[in-house]
Amino acid sequence: MTRGIRGATTVAVNAADVIINNTKNLIEEMIKKNNVLPEDVSHVFISVTKDITATFPAKGLRELSGWTYVPVMCMTEIDVPNSLELCIRVMMVVNTELEQSNIHHVFQNEAIHLRPDLAKWNKEDK
């Protein structure tokens, strides 16, 4: 079965090293909580808010061992007034036997406000 794993984080500043590190940390937690192997990943979409321009967040994923051949695409999130700033969102599409209700979506930093219901559920699961 193909399932989506959602993740999101924020950065304090639009700086390449911060963007790469926060993205890498987010994806590492998504991998750990869902027992994801790179060969089970169909593709990964990463979107950023318009204020993130210093680098491609996919560089954080590329630092992970075994993730060289996973297709990744970065894009800009739609610019909704009063939405969360400096935000990186990830949609990882994986082949898994997990039921949809057992997928662990990961929200870090200020991104916990995007889906507090899922962020709370996963925080209790740590």
Rank of each mutant, 00 (worst) to 15 (best):
M1L: 08
R3Q: 13
G4K: 12
G7L: 04
T9Y: 01
T10P: 03
V13D: 11
V13L: 09
N14W: 10
N14G: 02
A15R: 08
V18N: 14
I19L: 05
I20Q: 09
N21Q: 13
T23L: 03
I27K: 07
I27N: 13
I27S: 11
E28I: 02
E29P: 00
I31A: 07
I31L: 05
N34V: 04
N35H: 10
N35F: 06
L37M: 10
L37T: 12
E39Y: 13
E39G: 14
D40W: 04
V41R: 00
H43I: 11
S47K: 14
S47V: 07
V48T: 11
V48Y: 05
K50P: 14
D51W: 08
I52R: 02
I52F: 10
T55I: 05
T55Q: 04
F56K: 09
P57G: 07
A58Y: 04
L61R: 01
E63I: 00
V70M: 05
V70G: 07
C74R: 02
M75Q: 13
E77Y: 00
E77H: 02
I78A: 07
I78R: 09
I78W: 08
D79T: 07
V80H: 10
N82G: 02
S83W: 03
L84N: 00
E85F: 00
C87V: 00
C87Q: 03
I88H: 00
V90F: 11
M92C: 14
V94N: 08
E97D: 13
E97T: 15
L98H: 08
S101A: 15
I103F: 12
H104S: 14
V106W: 00
F107N: 07
E110S: 12
A111T: 03
I112F: 05
H113A: 10
R115K: 13
D117A: 14
D117L: 09
N122W: 11
K123H: 13
E124A: 10
E124M: 13
